[in-house]
């Protein structure tokens, strides 16, 4: 009684056939190599798309992280003041914002004339 190995080896189709012929091998090689020449363009596209998606994800993550952080108290410095440049004839404004959220707005009268100095 034969064992499985003998059965399989006797039934092996390569006992009666030769391997891949040179002409078939050359044909398959040409097809594969030609395909490889065009493949990197697709690869570059996907690499670019992946980089863009990664950048977008990073931006979203950074935005989410920043939104969750409590606002740090800012010192009230003169630098916090901002001025609104008036159009000609309008009054000039000076605005200050305090860390607590209070706003101080100074409106400067352009027609104001200093006529004297207090003692």
């Amino acid at each position: 009684m034969k064992d499985i190995r003998s059965w399989l080896r006797e039934a092996d189709p390569l006992r009666a056939e030769s391997g891949l012929s040179e002409s078939d091998a050359a044909r398959i090689r040409n097809v594969a190599v030609a395909s490889a020449r065009t493949a990197p363009a697709v690869g570059l596209f996907w690499r670019g798309a992946l980089a863009a998606a990664a950048a977008l994800a990073l931006m979203i993550a950074a935005g989410t992280f920043a939104a969750r952080q409590p606002a740090a108290p800012r010192p009230a410095t003169p630098g916090a003041a901002s001025t609104v440049e008036p159009a000609s004839g309008e009054r000039r404004q000076l605005q200050f914002a305090t860390p607590g959220g209070t706003r101080i707005i100074w409106t400067l009268d352009p027609e104001f004339q200093l006529k004297g100095v207090a003692p």
Binding site: I28, R29, V31, A32, V33, S35, A36, A39, P40, G43
Partner: peptide, 8 residues
């Protein structure tokens, strides 16, 4: 080999 060409 075509799959190899697509994912070198």
């Amino acid at each position: 080999f075509l799959r190899a060409a697509k994912a070198p």
